[in-house]
Design a protein around this nucleic acid. Structure first.
Lengths: 339, 339
DNA sequence: CTGAAAGCGCTTACAG
DNA sequence: CTGAAAGCGCTTACAG
């Protein structure tokens, strides 16, 4: 079923069929109706490859995320997709699995498909990737990460500042001995910024994060559970444990419950993300949250604006995460006080 | 950068450039090398629209899932994508948000993009959708759901049988008064099959699921928590609560803990999915699990086989879920016995 | 094995 | 406002 057959049935030229669908105002109502009727009768769906080739517009946008196994990124995609769909754009999704080479491959595959815009989580990617985008004048934005002086347009939040805030709050509660359970820093500027935030806040207070009390590994509950138990077995047991995200904090809390440790009496612990269960568990987890769906929505909207020509470049947007102070933290020495 | 310029730089015809990339065996090594070198020098990436139009092959596969806000479907997508990527296929993702019309729209958009194959979660979709696939001879498979005599090729598991098994096990523990917390049945054959399974197993034992003890609503922890508390406030309090999935069971368990009810002493409860936290919480949740990543992998492999021509149609595959008997269930009257 | 050329299904100046 | 026709970037019979 080709456009030409629609034209024949409607008794008009192929140009008119194309116009009736793409620039309806440029065609009289009589033609429009004849065309729509013929198209419906033939059950015609315009072929995207033909359109793309003729118009050099694919109406495809791309998104590269580290993994789908994390509701944080899934939500970002879902926000993006709703906006793109409203504007007739299809979303091409790629997962890098935290491997920069894989991310680059995905980006190249997307370029071959003619993506008109791209979002990519974080800025830890080969220069080649960003170069390819710029060379082809494909607008892109780095999501989730935000920092001043970032060489790329970015829409996200300041991961470092967020963890400075968490750390400072714990310091203000009197904690001095800190532990941390974290996802790997490799190819993950967010994790790196978060750790930096902890270290900076500690150092400003004359404290340090002892390497022995920093556990870095695959961000599973298993790992967090093992880390927690190692942390509490340490002679220099921390009174406050900062986790790289909620999932790690939850893993630690389940182990705490198995071992008979209770927050905030025996230790304080924090996460990041505010998963649904974090506010329902006992103790309710102190954490920070950022609206990921919103990040996706804003990213898509800004990119679309550039494509429409109503903006020259994507302007960076900084979202502010919320601090959710709940029951998993308390003043240092809470236990002694309560005894 | 077009193929023609690569041909010019390499000093060969455009046909040879095309062959060097797509059918390297049909070209001498000398030509192959000249072409590859020229392509690299020009940083040429073949245009997918041109390829698609000329070859009527897009190397695009589609997947329609209800939502990305559920790691179950996310995992299926991730399995699929890894297989497709290995075979040079790009995945187009669509979310229906449990709205059949939206699912149909997504499918049509995918047809316009020239998807060569499609996977779609469940069979609750407009006949028009499946008709369109068949009319265009696009191979498709229904995932997650599996039942005998399904009119579509399906790769998944028997949702009904799974819940028959759960229910029968609880009956064997002496439970007679059942409650259920469930996701809506509308446009969700999986939920419907699960409830059917419960009802069938109960009826075989001469029992019934009282409408008052069946809570159906948006599958959030909030809803499950409210439902649990209503269930336990009922004069006809159930001794066993079957949840439509783990998330609902976890929501119920958090409320149980708030209210001072303990499983399995005060009630038994089950889920489905085996989320990471389900085995770590106390009590460890009794649930069933199916390998969702595997469903995605198998679906993609079978579809690819049909595209390659090495299979006529997709053969259905039934996966068997595992029953994970843990601490959240116990014999009826456990409390009295332990007092 | 290699190349000249037609053609895939659309869009879009261009002319009327 | 409408149509004839060129052209988008590839692939693929076809001929040599």
């Amino acid at each position: 079923m080709r456009l030409e057959e629609v034209a024949r049935l409607a008794g008009v030229s192929t140009a008119s069929v194309s116009r009736a669908f793409n620039e309806p105002d440029k065609v009289t109502e009589i033609i429009r109706e004849k065309v729509f009727e013929a198209a419906r009768a033939l059950n015609w769906i315009p072929d995207a490859a033909g359109r793309a080739l003729a118009s050099s517009r694919t109406h495809i946008a791309g998104a590269i995320i580290p993994t789908l196994d994390n509701e944080i990124f899934a939500r970002q995609i879902s926000g993006m997709q709703s906006v793109y769909a409203q504007h007739g754009f299809t979303l091409l999704l790629g997962c890098s699995n935290y491997d920069p080479e894989e991310g680059l491959k995905q980006a190249q595959a997307m370029i071959a498909r003619g993506v008109e815009a791209l979002t990519i989580v974080g800025e830890d990617h080969p220069a080649e990737l960003f170069d390819a985008m710029r060379a082809r004048q494909i607008p892109y934005v780095v999501t989730y990460s935000y920092r001043e002086n970032c060489p790329h347009p970015c829409i996200g939040f300041d991961n470092k500042a967020a963890f400075v805030a968490i750390t400072q709050h714990l310091i203000s509660l009197g904690h001095e001995k800190f532990g941390a359970i974290f996802q790997p820093e490799a190819n993950n500027d967010r994790a790196r910024a978060r750790l930096e935030g902890i270290r900076e806040a500690l150092s400003q207070a004359g404290l340090v994060l002892s390497p022995k009390l920093l556990h870095v590994g695959a961000p599973s509950m298993e790992f967090a559970a093992q880390s927690f138990s190692a942390l509490m077995a340490n002679k220099e047991r921390p009174s406050a444990i900062i986790c790289g995200n909620d999932n790690l904090a939850l893993g630690a809390l389940t182990m705490a419950s198995d071992l008979g440790f209770k927050a905030p009496d025996d230790f304080s612990i924090t996460g990041f993300d505010d998963l649904a269960i974090s506010s329902r568990l006992s103790p309710r987890l102190t954490t920070m949250k950022v609206d990921n769906q919103q990040i996706g929505i804003i990213a898509a909207q800004h990119l679309l604006k550039v494509l429409r020509g109503s903006a020259k470049v994507v302007t960076p947007v900084e979202l502010k995460p919320f601090f959710l102070k709940r029951d998993s933290i308390g003043p240092y020495g809470a236990r002694k006080a309560s005894i």
